[in-house]
Design a protein around this nucleic acid. Structure first.
Length: 474
RNA sequence: GGCCCGGUGGUCUAGUGGUCAGGACGUCUGCCUUUCACGCAGAAGAUCACGGGUUCGAACCCCGUCCGGGUCACCA
């Protein structure tokens, strides 16, 4: 049974890199008919961000990445609790077990001592490793603050087969006697993750590359406990143009921000998946469901990937194109509310979407970028007016508006025929009226086909706008 | 600095010994059109990090070097 987990720490909002990790885990579970769990790793009490858990849950839900088991699920599942701060006795028990078997020891080094060691010989010098056990126990029982460290066997090689990188080997002498239980009684990540992954029967640990060098510690812990370790897959980092781990300085990094800009979850996910994964068939546009059928860790690339905003936009646009007009229209009401505009009637909106679809990449483009469908223009684009509005335009537009009032059939074909006939009678090229009409109707120089636009807008609005334009523009 | 990982056009990638190194984004040029966009056609852009080997033949295998990143916390 494939059982994977996404185990974020609630020290901040969901990051795009985190979403990618969650996605790969989710895809592997789906591909193999396994389970995807969500576990909250809140063992650092000092860095908790109050609404981080909620944010992570919300954004995963927005992205349609639903955990099968764990925090936020109803019911949570049989391996809970799934929040580490609620599992303290469990970690304590295992830490004690290691203490008794001599694979861990108490350490009384103070923060000052530690700082001094770091300065002088680059790290903890294992000074309490062989400290008298009985004496250590006595001090501990007397209430003296201490931590529990793992006793790393020296001179061994710890190696494993990473599913995306192949064989990786470490010398155990390079591994320090990592703290597994802190003086506040909380476990560190290393103990907590190993214990939980074992108890929750995790089969594959898929996480960021920043964890690669602590994997030998984890492997050693599995060995201490006599447990079979899961398979590991370390994903490359998502980086900026300078090759550094993506950070706030590089622009938008939290999933919230993409959501607020109006990206489609499917588009973001598709783009993120492509940052390191490819199916090997030159295909780039994938729905979540499609990826679930073919995803394989063997096809994940180990080198870091630069987050390319242009490519993201392109992928998002592809997803938009693939959607039915009705489905897009259903997503729009919240964007009208955000723009403080009344939500148009659905049938009208569907038609607008049909006309605007290939001109939009993000959801709000259907609102702010198509404003003239919902409100009369308040101004006219200057460059366009300069180029397209001639001295005779006002008169032509005024006369044409009058003619439109009596047009028998308000449909694009009839509108076009009427306009062309009108121009012919005036001895003018059609463009001499087409451009001024577009400007007068929309206030801008670009947009969908003019006659379709007029049809959708309706007679009353068009006539009104044309008269206004003929009035204002000279 | 030690250890670990990585290195194919600006970017994401295909490629695992044998066609002019393929695709996509972006850029540029045309075409289409009433405009913008879409679409279509085309172009520029890669010493496959570098140097040695192995081989008839290497982006692919081996060694070395360089560069980049990660990690060296009572943070995850």
């Amino acid at each position: 049974m494939t059982r994977v987990r996404f185990a974020p720490s609630p020290t901040g909002y969901l990051h795009v890199g985190g979403l990618r990790t969650a996605l790969y885990n989710y895809l592997l579970a789906r591909r193999h008919g396994g389970k995807f769990l969500l576990r909250v790793e809140d063992t650092d009490q000092s860095r908790l961000v109050p609404d981080a858990v909620q944010n992570i849950l919300d954004n995963l839900r927005w992205a349609n990445i639903f955990p099968d088991e764990g925090a936020g699920c109803h019911p949570e599942g049989d391996h809970g609790p799934y929040v580490q701060s609620q599992r303290l006795p469990i970690y304590r028990k295992y830490a004690d077990q290691l203490l008794e078997s001599g694979q861990a020891y108490r350490c009384f080094a103070s923060a000052e001592e530690l700082a001094e060691m770091r300065q002088n010989h680059g790290g903890y010098d294992r000074r309490y490793r062989d400290y008298d056990v009985a004496e250590a126990r006595r001090r501990a029982e007397a209430g003296e603050a201490h931590v529990i460290r793992m006793k790393v066997p020296l001179g061994e090689s710890v190696d494993f087969e990473d599913l995306v990188r192949g064989q990786v080997r470490f010398d155990s002498a390079q591994v320090d006697d990592q703290v597994i239980l802190k003086s506040d009684g909380f476990p560190t990540y290393h103990l907590a993750a190993v214990v939980d992954d074992h108890e929750m029967e995790i089969s594959h640990v898929i996480r960021g590359e920043e964890w690669l060098t602590s994997t030998p510690k984890h492997l050693l812990l599995y060995r201490f406990f006599g447990w079979t370790p899961p398979r590991f897959a370390h994903l490359s980092l998502v980086v900026n143009l300078s090759g550094k781990k993506l950070s706030k300085r590089d622009g938008d990094v939290s999933v919230n921000e993409y959501r607020e800009q109006g990206y489609l979850p499917a588009g973001l996910l598709n783009f993120l998946a492509l940052l390191g994964w490819s199916n090997g068939d030159n295909r780039e546009v994938w729905s979540l469901e499609e990826m679930e059928k073919v995803f394989a860790l063997e096809r994940v690339h180990p080198s870091p990937a630069v987050f390319d905003f242009d490519k993201l936009r392109h992928i998002n646009q592809q997803h938009l194109f693939a959607m039915a007009d009705e489905a897009i229209a259903d997503l729009l009401p919240e964007w009208f509310r955000k723009a403080a505009l009344a939500v148009p009637e659905r049938a009208f909106l569907v038609r607008v979407v049909g006309l605007m679809k290939q001109r939009c990449t993000l959801l709000p483009d259907f609102v702010a970028g198509a404003r003239y469908f919902y409100a009369d223009p308040e101004s006219y684009d200057e460059a366009t007016a300069k180029k397209r509005w001639k001295p005779e335009s006002a008169e032509l537009v005024r006369e044409f508006a009058a003619q439109l009032e009596d047009l028998p059939e308000w449909r694009s074909a009839e509108l076009e025929a009427a306009l062309r006939k009108f121009c012919e009678d005036k001895g003018q090229p059609a463009a001499a009226l087409i451009h001024p009409v577009r400007l007068g109707i929309s206030g801008v120089g670009g947009g969908p086909g003019l006659f379709e636009m007029l049809e959708v807008l309706g007679r009353e609005i068009c006539v009104r706008r044309l008269r206004k334009a003929a009035e204002v523009l000279r």
